[in-house]
């Protein structure tokens, strides 16, 4: 069986395959990495590093994008 890690994304618990990158995580969630910004454990993950940073067990992610606002 594939090994998984337990993380939080935008406040919700999730299990994802171990060893994937943050860019993989975005794709797994159906998101285009180029259209979002990612915060990992309160630190920004630069877009240039999304493919290099590996998702670790216990990570807490905020993934945001632009929406309509005044």
């Amino acid at each position: 069986m594939q090994e998984t890690v337990s993380i939080r994304v935008n406040g919700s618990h999730r299990r994802v395959p171990a060893g994937i990158s943050v860019a993989d995580l975005a794709l797994e969630l159906g998101l285009e990495p180029a259209k979002v910004a990612v915060e990992r454990n309160l630190e920004i993950v630069p877009r240039s590093a999304l493919a290099e940073v590996i998702v670790e067990d216990g990570d807490d992610y905020e993934i945001v994008t632009f929406v309509g606002g005044g």
Binding site: V9, G11, G30, A37, I63, F66, G69
Partner: peptide
């Protein structure tokens, strides 16, 4: 002006 909000993970399309 635009706001910054969590992406919709339950309906990413």
């Amino acid at each position: 002006t635009v706001a910054v909000r969590r992406v919709n993970i339950s309906d990413p399309g």
